[in-house]
């Protein structure tokens, strides 16, 4: 698992979501990438029933890159606890429906084509909150390197190469605390959750 960086791509007024994805696909294919199927990252949220006391939320995420794993993140007001389990954890959450209820309206997913170019993997995802399109999220993974601090500049240069000037010059806020640590798939999921929360909140703006 190499270092992965997520980047939102702003949609220009005149274009729609699918056409922006087409544009990015053309750019990346022109750089020499080959398509390697599709990917899907989705997130479902469960919140505790009032009888259990203070409000707690469990986000359950799946990543098609790790198909046998379920990532869960528990957010109490003060703590965030990640948990990595087998696929049957979904079944367990279903059994706990008396205690933690799922809010179907806030199911978020990002899906789209997946490309490979040299040692990079690029995924162009269209984010949808309960079937409503919200934006474009680009994920780039540089497979050989496992420490973010070493290759942040390299990844940024790559992103600028085909996304243009919309790339931020500082690493994502979640990664900033973890630049010197070995990168794990859990870090990718936490970044996705960050972005998904932003997209969910923008629900009200649109």
């Amino acid at each position: 698992m190499g270092v992965t960086v997520l980047q939102q791509f702003p949609i220009v007024e005149q274009r729609t979501g699918p056409s922006t994805i087409e544009l990015l696909t053309k750019r990346i294919v022109a750089l020499g990438a080959t398509q390697q199927g599709q990917f899907l990252v989705d997130c479902e949220t469960y919140s505790s029933v009032p009888q259990l006391g203070a409000q707690k939320t469990v986000h359950v995420l799946h990543n098609s890159e790790q198909p046998a794993t379920v990532f869960s993140i528990l957010e109490t007001g003060s703590k965030t606890i990640p948990l990595i389990t087998d696929g049957l954890f979904d079944l367990l959450m279903m059994k706990m429906s008396n205690f933690y209820q799922s809010k179907k309206q806030t199911k978020v997913e990002s899906k789209g084509p997946r490309f490979e170019i040299g040692d990079f993997s690029v995924k162009l995802g269209s984010v949808a909150v309960s079937q409503n399109f919200k934006g474009i999220l680009v994920e780039v993974e540089y497979r050989p390197c496992i420490v973010p601090a070493m290759c942040w500049d390299l990844i940024r240069e790559f992103l600028q190469g085909f996304l243009g000037s919309s790339v931020s010059s500082t690493p994502p806020p979640y990664l900033q605390n973890k630049m010197q640590e070995v990168y794990t798939p859990n870090d990718t999921i936490q970044q996705y959750l960050e972005h998904f929360t932003v997209y969910r909140k923008s629900h009200f703006k649109m």
């Binding site: 750089l31 020499g32 040299g118 040692d119 500049d153 390299l154 240069e157 790559f158 190469g161």
Partner: peptide
């Protein structure tokens, strides 16, 4: 002065 050239460092 670039990091990448044909996708290699």
């Amino acid at each position: 002065a670039n990091h990448l050239h044909s996708n290699l460092p």
